[in-house]
Simulated scan of single mutants.
Amino acid sequence: MAYPQHTTTGMTTHPDLTEMRERLERTASSSGAIAVEGLILLTGVYTAISPWAVQFSSQTNITVSNLIAGVTTALIGLGLALAPERMFRLAWAIVPLGFWLVVSPWVVTPTHGARPGIVWSNCLAGGVTALLGLIAMGLTVRVARQSPR
């Protein structure tokens, strides 16, 4: 008994695929997108080094939290800068990282509380991170909604 062979080509042969990639590449290489990518990278680096810059590295839990969140944000920013056409859909992950930075001083250090420097540093870095993530997401949505020309 012979079984019918089904060949599916998927989206790789879709005629609009190349046009969508070109639009994404144009948006990702615009000056606004480049600035957002660089700011995401810098915010991630600041977040990673903030325990030593603000001098709260003796509090291990918040130090590890900031280090992980900062390195993750910086890596996403670096990926956006190096391969925007592949990484732009990951921009949504930056927003929860920003929110985590804002609430982490109270979540990670609930027993003895966080010093004002930790709170200010994390709230500022978290707010900027979340805002930049929303801007990067907006760029992605704008590309997806543009009509073909």
Rank of each mutant, 00 (worst) to 15 (best):
Glu85Cys: 05
Thr27Asn: 07
Ala69Glu: 02
Leu134Glu: 13
Trp92Lys: 14
Leu39Pro: 00
Ile76Gln: 09
Thr109Gln: 14
Val71Asp: 08
Val103Cys: 09
Leu75Ala: 07
Thr8Pro: 09
Ala130Cys: 12
Gly133Cys: 02
Gly38Leu: 09
Leu41Gln: 05
Ser50Arg: 10
Thr72Met: 03
Trp52Asn: 13
Asp16Gln: 09
Gly10Pro: 06
Leu131Asn: 03
Trp106Glu: 12
Pro84His: 05
Ile62Lys: 06
Met11Val: 12
Ala93Gly: 13
Gly133Ile: 05
Ala53Ile: 07
Met87Phe: 07
Leu78Arg: 08
Val36Gly: 10
Ile40Asp: 01
His14Arg: 06
Asp16Thr: 04
Ile68Cys: 11
Pro116Gly: 14
Glu22Thr: 13
Thr18Arg: 09
Ala91Phe: 01
Val119Ala: 12
Thr13Glu: 07
Ala28Asn: 07
Trp106Asn: 11
Leu131Tyr: 01
Gly133Trp: 00
Ile40Ala: 02
Trp100Asp: 00
Arg21Ile: 11
Arg115Leu: 07
Leu132Val: 07
Val128Thr: 10
Glu25Asp: 14
Phe88Lys: 13
Trp106Gly: 08
Leu97Pro: 11
Leu90Glu: 11
Trp52Cys: 01
Val107Tyr: 00
Gly38Pro: 02
Trp92Cys: 15
Ile62Tyr: 00
Ser65Gly: 08
Ser104His: 05
Thr72His: 04
Glu25Pro: 06
Thr13Ala: 00
Pro105Asn: 02
Pro110Glu: 10
Ser121Glu: 13
Thr12Trp: 15
Thr18Gly: 07
Glu19Trp: 14
Thr13Cys: 00
Ser29Gly: 13
Ile118Met: 11
Leu80Phe: 00
Arg86Met: 04
Ser30Arg: 07
Ile40Trp: 03
Thr12Arg: 15
Gly44Asp: 08
Ala125Val: 08
Thr8Asn: 11
Ile34His: 02
Ser30Trp: 11
Leu24Cys: 05
Val54Gly: 10
Phe99Ile: 04
Gly38Arg: 04
Leu75Gln: 04
Ala83Tyr: 09
Thr73Asp: 05
Leu80Trp: 02
Thr129Ile: 13
Ala33Glu: 06
Ile62His: 01
Gly32Arg: 15
Thr73Phe: 03
Ala81Thr: 10
Val128Ile: 15
Val45Tyr: 01
Ser104Asn: 05
Leu131Ser: 09
Thr111Gln: 11
Trp52Leu: 13
Val108Lys: 04
Gly127Leu: 08
Cys123Pro: 02
Thr8Ala: 10
Leu82Trp: 01
Gly70Gln: 06
Leu82Arg: 08
Val102Ala: 09
Trp92Glu: 15
Thr27Met: 12
Glu22Phe: 11
Ser121Phe: 03
Val103Gln: 05
Gly127Val: 08
Trp120Thr: 15
Ser104Phe: 00
Leu42Phe: 08
Thr63Glu: 09
Val95Tyr: 13
Ser121Tyr: 09
Ala93Asn: 08
Gln59Asn: 11
Leu131His: 01
Ile118Cys: 09
Ala130Gln: 04
Leu78Asn: 06
Thr43Arg: 10
Arg115Gln: 11
His112Ile: 03
Ser104Pro: 04
Asn61Ala: 15
Pro84Leu: 01
Met20Ile: 10
Leu41Val: 03
